[in-house]
């Protein structure tokens, strides 16, 4: 489903991702762990197409398509979703308007009809409820005044509404209390299907005990230096990066 080959990404003059290879197949869940500043979020942003993150060489293929030839919104149309480590606040735009415009944009990209307001409301309420989000928060401006955990939960509601083929979740678990972590993990597990894939970026074994990954990668200084099964995460937590990688 996702195939990244020898990817190099620079921000300004600085190379941050330095020759990264990654393949994720449909039905799989992968996790990337790594030290602060290793380039995990940069990798995620490059896959999503943020324009100040320059891909200097290498390739990103998703669903057989060259992602680098597509604009960010087109990548979403193809089924990509990025859960932000730091979700952005957008004053003046309500969550509902945001979600509805997003969903209908994706449907339009796929040649599907717009969803009616009633159908949409039903869908959003259902997804918000599953993620324990107060429906009142849907009326508020996107992420404005949301707590750290509420912002992460809002990311999950967006994912659930857009129903992506591949969800890249950048530290969705950080800042969550234990109950919220469980709710979010359930949300992620619901999204795991034969035809979907998940890429979790995380620092903590805890999320991985709820959402068990098929493959765990260790990223250091812009490269994946080691990959293994879910036991690798435990090993990292015990011994630290220096001994494992």
């Amino acid at each position: 489903m996702l195939n990244i080959k020898d990817l190099h990404v620079s921000v300004g003059d600085k190379e941050i991702v330095k020759g990264l290879n990654l393949e994720i197949k449909a039905g799989e869940t992968h996790a990337i762990m790594g030290l602060n500043g290793a380039g995990k979020s940069t990798l995620a942003a490059a896959i999503a197409g943020r324009d100040d993150y320059e891909v200097t060489s290498g390739s990103i293929e998703f669903g057989g398509k060259d992602m680098l030839a597509l604009e960010p919104h087109e990548r979403v149309g193809e089924g990509l979703f990025l859960g932000f480590q730091y979700p952005v606040e957008i004053p003046g735009v309500s969550n509902l308007n945001f979600l509805r415009t997003a969903l209908n944009s994706v449907r339009k990209y796929r040649g599907e009809a717009e969803m009616s307001a009633a159908e949409f409301m039903k869908l959003v309420r259902e997804k918000a409820k599953a993620l324990n989000m107060d429906p009142e928060m849907l009326k508020r401006f996107v992420n404005v005044g949301f707590s750290g955990g509420e912002k992460k939960r809002n990311e999950m509601v967006q994912m659930a509404v857009l129903d992506p083929k591949l969800a890249i979740l950048d530290e969705t678990d950080s800042g969550l209390d234990i109950d919220a972590l469980k709710t979010v993990a359930e949300g992620i597990n619901t999204q795991r299907r034969k035809d979907t894939a998940i890429l979790l970026i995380t620092h903590y074994q805890r999320l991985l005990s709820y959402v068990q990954p098929d493959v765990v990668h260790v990223m250091i200084d812009g490269r994946i230096v080691k990959s293994g099964g879910k036991e690798l995460a435990l090993e990292l937590e015990e011994k630290g990066y220096a001994d494992v990688a």
């Binding site: 960010p72 919104h73 979403v76 952005v88 957008i90 003046g92 997003a102």
Partner: peptide, 21 residues
């Protein structure tokens, strides 16, 4: 970028932000 990363095209994204502003 946040809006476009949810599938909204950049023209619409800018329009939404200006309307909000």
């Amino acid at each position: 970028f946040y809006l476009t990363s949810r599938g909204i095209d950049p023209v619409t994204a800018r329009r939404m932000l200006v309307e909000a502003f």
